[in-house]
């Protein structure tokens, strides 16, 4: 919970990356719905991609999250429409609690990317060709370190430097440590009350 209440400045994320290729990887695939029956987010780090990683009898499948050399990765490289579908914050919670601190993809489901913002996880986009190149490096050299830098809006690693994008307001929220929206919004509580009073009087 501490990671939600604190609002630290996030300018760089560094570390190894796990490639999760495929368009339209929905939040049901990221976190199967049955884990939403847990009353807290505490255990979700055990379950990201659970049904893509394990058969129903528990036997492992081939999946990047199962591979030893991607354990400890701090970035995820996806493709188009990553995190589409259900609004469940449990999906990014599962990824962050597994260790993911930034996600780079061609595009994102919008509720998913908004949820990542509220958790202080930068989600940034890169072109289809650049994502293919980034995934290729992470696949061939799983030990490669990457540096995602919101100041220069680049990601750098394995001999490749790629431009990344994100909405200006989200970038600012990350870089200034203003992604804990509750405090920002409550600071204007009197404006909300004033707006409602004006409506009632109209």
């Amino acid at each position: 919970m501490s990671r939600i209440t604190q609002s630290s400045r996030i300018i760089q994320v560094t570390g190894r990356a796990v490639p999760v290729p495929g368009d339209d990887i929905d939040t049901d695939r990221i976190l199967p719905a049955r884990y939403m029956k847990e009353l807290t987010f505490a255990n979700l780090g055990q379950y990201p991609f659970q049904d893509e990683r394990f058969h129903s009898d528990g036997a492992p499948k081939r999946h990047p999250f199962n591979e030893a050399h991607y354990q400890g990765a701090s970035m995820l490289f996806g493709n188009a429409n990553f995190g589409c579908g259900s609004s469940r914050e449990q999906a990014p919670q599962a990824l962050t609690r597994w260790g993911i601190r930034a996600i780079v993809a061609e595009s994102f489901g919008e509720i998913f990317s908004g949820n990542c913002l509220t958790l202080g996880v930068p989600v940034v986009t890169a072109s289809q060709a650049d994502m293919a190149a980034l995934q290729n490096i992470a696949r061939k050299n799983p030990g490669a370190d990457f540096n995602l830098d919101l100041a220069s809006m680049t990601i750098n690693g394995g001999g490749l430097l790629v431009k990344i994008s994100m909405p200006a307001s989200r970038r600012k929220a990350m870089m200034e440590g203003a992604w804990d929206s509750t405090g920002l919004l409550l600071a204007n509580a009197d404006k909300v009350a004033g707006m409602l009073a004006a409506r009632a009087a109209a």
Binding site: R88, T118, S181
Partner: peptide, 21 residues
């Protein structure tokens, strides 16, 4: 009308507002 995550549910409960683009 749009869907939100749980931290945003918290924000709406706490102040009836969301931060949006």
């Amino acid at each position: 009308a749009f869907g939100i995550g749980t931290s945003q549910v918290r924000d709406v409960l706490a102040g009836q507002c969301l931060a949006m683009d």
